[in-house]
Amino acid sequence: MNNRNNRFLAAPYLIWSAGFIIIPLVMVLYYAFTDFNGSFTVSNVTAIISYVNIKALMLSIAFSLAATFMCLIIAYPLCLILTTVIKNSSSFLSLIFILPMWMNSLLRTYAWQNILERKGVINGILAFLNLPLFYIINKPPAILLGMIYDFLPFMVLPVYNSVSRIDKDLLNAARDLGADPFETFLRVIWPLSLPGVISGITMVFVPSLTTFVISDILGGGKILLIGNVIEQLFTQDSDWNAGAGLSAILMVFIVISMFITAKYDREDIK
């Protein structure tokens, strides 16, 4: 196929990305650096250093790091088990973990609200068994739980892909050369799965950093993450300039994590 045809085929995608990705991005930046009258200002962006905003941003980063870490801790052993111990039924088991992705995340989050409520499913069972009740709804653990549940599949998929692509002979070779199972993991499995781990980290960290739905529903509006602050600026205060300013700051953090991914993708091993 010649170049002209290739360009023609790419046109719909180019139009799409211009209309729905590039133009909105430019608009966000435009609003971020202008005031209500349309004249240039940096006050929207520097607003991040106010106590409320910086606290929300730090809290968001802390929640995202914790959620990412927990997802990795859960997903990595799971992927190892899926690829080595029970390889015959692995496609079914990985389907179980991927299945929630096919449901609307809002629905899943509301479901957690029902489960965790003061008179919710868990406490209903605990009360029935005469056990002490369990209150985490509207507290940080509920938000963390929601993030882990919602974003776990984004960790499982890339990690599973990279772990399952490791040639079993490489593991045999490591054992043959004197490595015990732990050394085999440390020197062969872990470094070869790193590209999957890195993209898993990005795919969990970025949506965790920007979420406002999970903190809204499971935090009861009491815990403000940076996503909630931005959402309120747009919807309640109708201050698009201030909202765009904070969004721009958030984008900087996302771009940084994207750069880290891109760096490791280049070092990806076929």
């Binding site: 040639d167 002979d169 490489l170 045999n172 070779a173 490591a174 054992r175 043959d176 050369l177 004197g178 490595a179 015990d180 020197r187 062969v188 470094p191 070869l192 091993i269 076929k270």
Partner: peptide
């Protein structure tokens, strides 16, 4: 287990560690 045996194997598909240089591969054991 294999790591405790005084034998070494040359695998059919070579099984060189793709993330290591040749020197690191040879130095593994």
């Amino acid at each position: 287990p294999p790591n405790k045996r005084e034998v070494n194997t040359v695998f059919q598909k070579y099984a060189l560690f793709p993330h290591m240089t040749i020197a690191e591969n040879i130095a593994f054991g």
